[in-house]
Amino acid sequence: MNFNFLSPVSEAVLAHNELLSTQALGKKIKIYSKQQGFPDLEGARIAIVGVLENRNDINYIGEEFNFNEVRKSLYSLFPGNWSSTIVDLGDINKGESVEDTYFALKTILEILIPKKIIPIILGGSQDLTYSNYRAYDSLAPMVNIVNVDSKFDLGDSQKPIKNDSFVGKIILDQPYNLFNYASVGYQTYFNSQEEIDLMDKLYFEYYRLGQVSKDISLVEPVMRDANIVTIDLGCIKAAELSERQKVTPNGFDGKEICAITRYAGISNKVSSFGIYEYKPSSNDDITSMLMAQMIWYFIEGVNYRVKDDDFSDEDSYQKFITLTDDQELIFYKSNKTQRWWIEIPFLSNVNNKLKRHTLLPCMHEDYLDACNNKLPDRWFKAFQKNSV
């Protein structure tokens, strides 16, 4: 296995870890260090990987950075009642070119994901999500991405990739493996009308900041259908972050973003997770601790995953059929978790690559809407994509 791209966790972090309580999370994590070498991946469930790459940030000014403070904050927390083995694989340093870094990240993910090890990627600029996505080329026929961000990041795909245009590259670059893209927490004034129109044209999903803040549970079915979850720290309001990290006065607060990361963790499909746009500074305690808590809640979610979507056993679910105009909608409700799904009918000409999307996660409210002759929006968009 090729892990030559990785550098060990810094001595400063390890020295800090030595001073922590024996019950602290840092004492439970298998850490890549110069002294101990590379950790054994046998039995590992979660792997932390830093990526020290931000040259495709549109505001790049050439500064160096590291994740030492994030690791110190994370290690100092106490774990929950977890059974998952966690490893910290250190950092991917900047390659000679950004493409070299992309290749290194893609290569490492191609090793971890088939082993059922969920990578937690710390970035760096968010264009690294493109490399994350490309790692699935040989792993999955179709991919769903959820981007927690104030912007869609569609950008101009005709120009070189940047952290504000990586989604446009994902959509247009071959091979075409993207099935659904969902934006959570977008703010209208940061996105052009042309981008909003394109999201509609492609039947992608987008949820405004106000929608999600009003009802955070809207995020759960979206996350339940995601393979990749990517978070831009710019979606968090300035009051929650250190001075260097402040982007916008409006955004998610700390409690909301941690709830979102927990929803990502409990999703059985999420197989890679990334937090991006970290900009460290001398006054960095708040941002690093918030990132640490986001990671903590994601790991908490992973430890509470429940397999509840096997509908071959009739005793494990309830089935509901409703009629809306000319559509018969079929819903399933898990007896174990009370979570809901809706069936997406297939047309005869549909590409076989889409067949795993027959059941779409939804909410109880979607069933109630269908009972009132209203088609659920998620169902409509998925049906339209399946019909193309």
Rank of each mutant, 00 (worst) to 15 (best):
G210I: 12
R356K: 11
T261S: 14
T248M: 09
Y203P: 00
L329A: 07
D253Y: 11
D366Y: 05
I275F: 00
Y186T: 03
F320M: 06
G37W: 00
P39W: 03
S281F: 02
L323H: 14
L323Q: 15
G185D: 10
D57P: 00
G301N: 03
Q327I: 13
I236E: 05
Y130N: 06
S267V: 05
I120L: 06
N132F: 00
H16M: 07
D137K: 07
G185L: 08
L202I: 04
E243F: 14
Y102C: 01
F252A: 10
E64C: 02
G50K: 02
R134P: 03
G80P: 02
L52S: 03
L218G: 05
N147V: 05
I231Q: 01
K159Q: 15
G37C: 01
A382K: 13
K34S: 09
M142H: 02
V219K: 04
I58E: 10
I161G: 02
S192M: 04
K30Y: 09
I344N: 10
V302L: 09
S21E: 10
F383W: 15
P221Y: 13
N59G: 06
K34T: 08
F103R: 07
I342R: 03
E343V: 01
K319Y: 04
M289W: 00
D137S: 10
L368G: 00
V350S: 13
S73K: 15
R244E: 15
D149P: 06
A44T: 12
L109I: 03
T188Q: 13
L41M: 03
L112C: 05
S282L: 07
I113G: 05
I145P: 06
A259W: 02
K355D: 12
V87H: 07
V70K: 13
V87N: 06
E96M: 03
A140S: 15
I121D: 01
M289S: 09
I257V: 14
I216C: 12
T358Q: 12
K106H: 03
F65C: 10
G168N: 07
N59D: 12
T358V: 05
D315V: 00
I58D: 07
G168F: 08
F152T: 12
L354W: 10
V388R: 13
F179Q: 05
Q193H: 12
K237F: 07
F78L: 11
K162V: 09
D310N: 15
T324M: 03
V13F: 08
I299F: 01
A182G: 13
S288D: 00
L375N: 02
K336W: 00
D197I: 07
D100V: 00
Y317R: 05
K319S: 13
R134L: 11
I260E: 02
K269E: 14
M289I: 00
A140D: 10
P114Y: 02
L198Y: 11
I342Y: 04
M1S: 11
C235W: 02
S131C: 01
A259Y: 09
Q327R: 15
S138R: 13
H16V: 08
F65T: 04
D308C: 11
Y176D: 11
G251Y: 14
V146T: 15
V247W: 08
Q245D: 13
F65Y: 15
L25T: 01
S84P: 00
N303C: 08
K381S: 12
N177D: 06
D308F: 11
R208C: 04
D215W: 05
E243I: 15
N163H: 12
E205N: 14
D377V: 13
I111S: 10
G274R: 03
